[in-house]
Design a protein around this nucleic acid. Structure first.
Lengths: 140, 140
DNA sequence: ACATACTTTAGAATAATTATAAAGTAGTTA
DNA sequence: TAACTACTTTATAATTATTCTAAAGTATGT
């Protein structure tokens, strides 16, 4: 039997709206992801490690993957890729852009980049979204 | 003993400037990649399959990976990632952008996209490049 | 409290990539 | 050109990220 406070509600709603029953594991993952002020960038492996380090009873890899995927499909997480064959996720789902600096990711607010010219979508297609990556290197 | 025509020279130079001895395998890969009019997008697996299909003596996976990596490091290929954990390479190394349409990649010439506003690089950093991805979906 | 469908989990399976080390080849030098 | 050495190729094993499987556990409606 669970005591539910209003804070948990958010996390549970995110799960429910992703078609997931709010099990203990999922609620903890959801809390871990969304109970923070700043945007959080992570890989599933990183998420698993940082959560499981603190826990006596570990959450399984499959559960991390399942939960992250469902949250992403429901639009609660954004997915993106770097050049190292792992998927990164971002708790900031608002349209925005990224700096990439040697594997480190920094968000760029959407309004920091505006376009003067954009191409039309090919026939029969329309633009779903536009994503800008600004790669950085050290000065001098 | 090899007969070398002027056409091969280009491919061999690309290898040499990548720090690679122009072995038969590498020259054939280099030709396959660069002896074409249109930009070529590929994964290493695709490259391997399309080249090896035609050959009686197959080139090994490791050689494809090694060669592609060296060419990429030397700047003869551009690497990019989609959300499926495989690296894509592009023989068009000029700064340009991409449409992504369900895993299919279409080049966008650099001058088709111009910016009205771009953020400054963080302190101590400078912008190496700016890459735009326009994701497409079907109309209606 | 029951039943049932959904979950969790450990471990196997898969896919992309990288590492290993033995056999082969290019480039240099005598 | 013969010989040498360093670089290559290759098959195969290893690794990494991810997905699948099927048995045991749990949430939810009645």
């Amino acid at each position: 039997m669970h005591k539910m406070n209003s804070k948990n509600k958010t996390f549970i709603d995110k799960l429910r709206s992703s078609g997931l029953r709010p099990t203990n594991q999922r609620v903890e993952i959801s809390k871990f992801l969304f109970n923070r002020k700043k945007t959080f960038h992570f890989t599933v492996e990183e998420l698993k490690n940082s959560m499981n380090l603190k826990r006596s009873k570990k959450i399984s890899t499959a559960t991390f993957y399942n939960t992250v995927h469902a949250l992403k499909s429901a639009g609660h997480l954004k997915e993106f890729s770097l050049e190292n064959n792992t998927s990164y996720y971002d708790t900031n789902i608002k349209s925005h852009h990224h700096f990439f600096d040697n594997g480190k990711v920094i968000d760029i607010k959407s309004d920091k980049i505006t376009f003067h010219k954009l191409p039309d979508a090919p026939k029969g297609k329309k633009i779903k979204n536009v994503e800008v990556v600004i790669r950085l290197e050290n000065n001098n």
